[in-house]
Design a protein around this nucleic acid. Structure first.
Lengths: 219, 219
DNA sequence: TAGAAAATCAGTATAAATACGGATAGATTT
DNA sequence: AAATCTATCCGTATTTATACTGATTTTCTA
């Protein structure tokens, strides 16, 4: 199937410039063809759902509004396993990489890598192989397997903790968060303590940076 | 001079993919030619300093390591005023736009704008005109003129305040910051209060987000 | 040179976050 | 069945941050 007609690609990125850049980059490569594009995870998923057989490769950013790249990857991989997913990320952090692996991404590259590596990644996943940016290889061969709980995400942070973290980043106090989630302020404090540990932060400030770096929240 | 030989461009961006994307986008436009590239502000400046006449347009990202895009813009504009500067930004905030204007940028566009707008911006600055992304036009025609103090940056934040902010984002307490800057903790608290006002934040969390959004710190 | 703004410092008070040291119930894994 | 992990809760104490109302010096600029 790689011989005559080009491999069709769907790009999901909230930065139009990245999309246009990639399209231009690929315009000279007749092996690939960018069929459609989306600016958030949900639209990307909808586009695929409308005609799943149309796409062979999904090229997605990590941090996008409405639905993140990793969530999109998970959903696509579970419903349309024939689609290869290449994740593009701004940051090179253990947590995000692990999340991408757990989402069963086929390739993961950083946005600060060049055209060559990008094309290599595309070639590899077209051959049913995988490609992970060189910088993150050490991370992969660690014990990510044992953390394969569906309810554990970036850096061992639970869904509940993530929920609390999102509200913290929204400048809410423990008191306010407690009310919003119908739990005690003490419980929120405990979550905070665990978040501080898991993110190796000294204070809430570190927490905010952690959340942003790991794409757990929208800036 | 626009007639025969292409207009030479220098790109500064710490994301190689953006550089390659832009290069691909411009490869079909024979009017422009990307001569060189840099991954941070300092290298970009060095490259220009080595041969200032070689470049007609500087295309730079806002947030870059070592030297930011706006700083780069200021330095280039003061030493080599013949070079037109187009600033590429991730975020569309009043503060950043104002900073870009004060840095005398010729064009300012967002990374989520498409190829067309990008080319329009290039054409405009080639004709000694300016181009500012449509979304930010209202901001421009406000009283940015009266804030034209060289020591005032993003959102009316002074250099000292910016200094304090940078340390806050590094998870330092007021006490620690006071020691580091050889001032009283009370002074640091005052700076904090002013920063909270100017960034419209309820707490330090908002301050951190503000700093990141406006490229005042490296994440 | 008068006025504005920045940078410095102070007191007092409250609110919020962090650090301890616990505890319990439920789910999952080994 | 035992161990582990999550999510929930409590008390006490300390540290940090924020709010409010001041003030002084310097620096720049209109």
């Amino acid at each position: 199937m790689e011989t005559d007609q080009p491999i069709s690609i769907l790009i999901a990125d909230d930065h139009q410039m990245i999309i246009d850049g990639i399209k231009s980059m690929l315009s000279s490569e007749k092996k690939y063809h960018v069929m459609d594009e989306a600016n958030d995870g949900q639209s990307a998923f909808d586009i695929i759902a409308r005609n799943p057989e149309k796409y062979q490769i999904l090229l997605t950013d990590i941090s996008m509004p409405i639905m993140s790249g990793t969530e999109l990857c998970k959903k696509v991989k579970s419903k349309y396993p024939h689609i290869k997913v290449l994740i593009l990320s701004m940051y090179n952090s253990t947590a995000v990489v692990k999340e991408a692996i757990l989402a069963e991404a086929d390739a993961y590259i950083l946005k600060n890598t060049g055209k060559d590596e990008f094309l290599t990644a595309l070639h590899r996943i077209s051959e049913n192989s995988t490609y992970f940016s060189q910088d993150i290889l050490p991370i992969i061969y660690q014990q990510y397997q044992k953390e394969k709980h569906s309810d554990i995400i970036a850096g061992g942070i639970s869904v509940r903790e993530k929920e609390v973290l999102a509200l913290i980043v929204k400048e809410m106090t423990s008191e306010e968060i407690a009310q919003k989630l119908f739990i005690s302020k003490k419980t929120v404090d405990t979550h905070r303590a665990h978040l501080l540990e898991k993110s190796n932060s000294k204070s809430t400030i570190g927490l905010v940076k952690f959340a942003i770096k790991n794409g757990l929240v929208e800036l």
